[in-house]
Amino acid sequence: MDPDKCQGHARCYGLVPELFEIDDYGQSTAVGDGSVPPELEERARLAIANCPEFAVEEIPPS
């Protein structure tokens, strides 16, 4: 989750509130270190595919 790109559309939070936090100004951040448990992977990809600012990215585990 790139906070510099986020403009507060809140699509990620609306789709997967387990993975994102949102403040009073609409700024989203990833919960914890941003890692995604396997059962949420599919919905996490939805968050990526619905962000109008391309602020959510998939980074494969190294």
Partner: peptide
């Protein structure tokens, strides 16, 4: 529709401030 990066509320710094309310 699962892939929907629509910009009905605009894009960039002027993203509609009332988008949560409108939704």
């Amino acid at each position: 529709r699962a892939h929907n990066r629509h910009v009905a509320f605009g894009s960039g710094i002027h993203r509609c401030a009332g988008s949560n309310l409108a939704r």
